[in-house]
Simulated scan of single mutants.
Amino acid sequence: MPYYASERLRSGRYSEPGQLYVLTCQVSKRVPVFADFWLARLVVHQLRLIEVEDLACSQAWVVMPDHIHWLIELKKGTLENIMQRFKSRSARAVNQARGCSGRLWQTGFHDRALRREENVLAVVRYIVANPLRAGLVERVRDYSHWDAVWL
């Protein structure tokens, strides 16, 4: 049986409440769906809903045209459960707004637990500076689809 990349991403994944994780997921075929302002805002709403449900505390996030980066502190549940909820509901909302159906997100997601000694502020800055590095804006504050509790 073949061993797919999404299976390697799950290898060794552990969900620990109180732990900080950087999560990344990509739009299927890297289509820049979230270049549309209103579709990006639908995704932002779903990020915030996870926090309202008390599953995670968002520390920072950015919605790029074809992917997201999200720094969370896990409160309860598993990373898989949070991402399944987020991706399912955001796909439903975006597809409804676009009048289409089908897959929005690539299978799987990337996660990285932050070590205690890591500079969390540096990770936050890296996340919110993504639009700047991608050449989408000249100043981070000019990009509409990011937030961070630290900045």
Rank of each mutant, 00 (worst) to 15 (best):
P2R: 14
P2T: 10
Y3E: 09
Y3V: 12
Y4F: 13
L9Y: 11
L9F: 09
R13S: 12
Y14T: 14
S15N: 03
G18C: 06
G18D: 10
G18S: 10
Q19F: 09
Q19L: 09
Q19D: 09
Y21H: 07
V22Q: 15
L23Y: 06
T24V: 11
T24C: 10
V27D: 02
R30D: 07
R30E: 02
R30L: 09
V31S: 07
P32I: 03
P32T: 04
V33F: 07
V33I: 15
D36I: 05
F37I: 09
W38A: 11
A40Y: 05
A40W: 04
R41Y: 08
R41D: 13
L42I: 08
V43Q: 07
L49Q: 14
D54I: 11
D54P: 03
D54R: 15
L55Y: 14
A56H: 08
A56R: 03
C57E: 15
C57Y: 15
S58R: 09
A60Q: 04
W61N: 00
W61L: 05
V62K: 05
V62D: 05
V63G: 05
M64W: 06
M64L: 09
H67R: 11
I68Y: 15
W70R: 04
W70P: 02
W70K: 03
L71I: 02
L71E: 01
E73C: 07
E73M: 11
K76R: 15
G77F: 02
G77L: 03
E80N: 13
E80K: 10
I82L: 15
M83F: 01
F86M: 08
F86A: 01
K87P: 01
S88F: 08
A91P: 04
R92T: 14
A93E: 12
V94R: 06
R98H: 05
R98N: 00
G99F: 10
G99A: 05
S101L: 08
R103F: 01
R103P: 06
R103K: 11
T107K: 15
F109N: 02
H110I: 07
R112K: 11
L114T: 00
R116K: 12
E118K: 02
E118L: 04
L121I: 09
A122G: 02
V123M: 02
R125M: 00
V128P: 05
A129N: 15
N130E: 01
P131K: 06
P131N: 02
P131M: 05
L132F: 13
L132P: 08
A134I: 04
G135L: 03
G135S: 02
L136M: 13
V137R: 01
V137W: 03
R139P: 00
D142I: 08
Y143W: 14
H145V: 06
D147F: 14
D147P: 00
A148M: 08
